[in-house]
Design a protein around this nucleic acid. Structure first.
Lengths: 295, 295
DNA sequence: CGGGTGGTTGATACTTATCAATGGCTGTGG
DNA sequence: CCACAGCCATTGATAAGTATCAACCACCCG
């Protein structure tokens, strides 16, 4: 695993103090709902030095990996690029920024919304639930992720989206975004790449759920998250922020929390990983890779 | 289950005689590969009366459900509509029609292709395989299905596509299709609906694989196929063509063929379904629905 | 007629779920 | 500040679900 930056972690519970507020909220954008940040059990404050693959001008660590940033839709980026570089018809997107406290639902599956949500900061999760309580997690959303590309065309998401940590979420008005993308085929194509990625992930998920052992699934989940965090430059050596509950892992892999616990215990006893205070360290990457049947 | 048409089925093995050849292959289109139709074990000839929701002018039963037809990309449809109704810039798509014998591979996962494949007739399946032989089926393709909407933008499919029955497959040149769709936002949006459907299916697949019992999964697979066939008007009462091997069902549901056999046996003994000579009859729909935990 | 594929069945093993009990931690309210 | 409630992690005992193995049969095709 490539390690991109060193950074401060492990600053245990500083209560309600979140640096998430640093998220750029340009004055011309309405922040129509900023609920009080509430009881996170234990969160890592995100006082991170800027890795050099990221533009420090706007203060968002993960922008380099962000789809909206890449599409030129991010307010932070718009601020800093010369006006001349922007398409003339760059619309004034209606967009709002929300801060959602940990463990709160962000979208309901049948909720009608005019907006396309993007996760700017924090961890979120989307899932489908059955009436009888069984639940399948479809994906974890990290900073810079569209919640789902389908939201470009559908007012309803068909999934439940929940904040795991406190989350900063930007919402672009669908009609604006759609008009803009459809008018710019090159951007539309870039957007479509995100869709293809989503699809590839969905295929892999099916493969994992249908044809892998519990140990493989869990190891793969860890590898996958680590890989994504590396891309964002938010790994600290072999250690990553890991706000997931065992319940999340269970719902993502189709297992029970109890069984997840046993496998995780086995991994730790075998010296593959270490878990503690909402962080996870990959101790023996080679072995974990093997356990994950990783490429 | 709504039953749309009555039709002839159960004409056991008439050897190599396939009505699939009726598929329209306009002379201006090259059929660059028409391998000899080979050893189907037992196939239902498709001498079907035209249901009234379908245009009988072009002889393809399922066109009404076909994405390409809807987009105006189907040669059959182009033939019969007044020229004036077509966009002026309707391109001369480079397109080929192939007939693939049963049980043959249509696309390899890493095969580079300039074309977007559409299944016109027959059953196909796409899957991912692991080096160790485990395999997950991602979807069954019936007549009128794009194999994957991702093929619009990606030269490589990332999946194996195989014919189950003999298959007629049209391939549209990607660059042509892409240019055309990007120039017609309304069509592009229609196309995107197909993508959304694919995505919804992928989500449901994950839910089924991760959170359902073997019986539910299998019952759901049957319900799902029946529903799709009804849309195409190819159900005969409660009976449908059913060319799947138990191996297919196993690979689609993440189970073993042996276990699938036992569940299927139980379903039949319980009077839910009947299976015979490559066809499946839903005997007790209400119960099957319940077993499938169907909406 | 013979070979191969696919369906069927029973015995057994393994993986994972379920149940139950315990203890730690965190946030809450007295 | 302390006690308590609730959530989460942990562990062991047991049960259920599904896989594996093996044998046999039926059928189709060459």
């Amino acid at each position: 695993m490539a390690i991109s930056t060193a950074q401060e972690m492990e600053q245990p519970q500083n209560g309600n103090e979140f640096d998430i507020e640093r998220a750029v909220i340009p004055s011309e954008y309405t922040a129509d709902e900023v609920p009080a940040v509430a009881q996170p059990r234990q969160m890592h404050a995100e006082k991170l030095p800027q890795p050099d693959n990221v533009d420090s001008a706007h203060g968002l660590l993960s922008c380099s990996a962000c789809t909206a940033y890449e599409l030129g839709l991010c307010a932070a980026k718009r601020k800093k690029v010369a006006e001349a570089d922007w398409p003339d018809d760059m619309p004034a997107f209606t967009s709002t920024v929300h801060t959602i406290p940990a463990r709160r639902t962000i979208c309901h599956p049948k909720e009608w919304s005019e907006f396309v949500p993007i996760i700017c900061q924090g961890w979120a999760v989307s899932s489908i639930a059955l009436p009888n309580g069984r639940r399948q997690i479809l994906s974890f959303h990290l900073s810079g992720d569209f919640v789902s590309t389908t939201s470009l065309l559908q007012p309803t998401l068909g999934r439940t989206v929940e904040a795991i940590t406190a989350v900063t979420c930007r919402r672009l008005k669908r009609s604006d975004l759609k008009a803009y993308l459809f008018a710019h085929p090159d951007l539309l194509e870039k957007f479509a790449r995100t869709w293809i990625e989503e699809r590839t992930q969905a295929d892999q998920l099916a493969l994992d759920l249908g044809r892998r052992t519990s140990e493989e699934s869990i190891a793969r989940l860890i590898m996958h998250l680590a890989e994504r965090l590396v891309k964002r430059g938010t790994m600290n050596g072999a250690t990553m922020e890991f706000p997931l509950r065992q319940r999340h892992i269970a719902d993502a892999t189709g297992l029970t929390p109890v069984h997840v616990n046993k496998v995780l215990g086995a991994f730790q006893r075998a010296g593959l990983i270490e878990i503690g205070s909402r962080s996870l360290t990959i101790v023996n990457e080679a072995e974990l890779r093997r356990a994950a049947d990783w490429r």
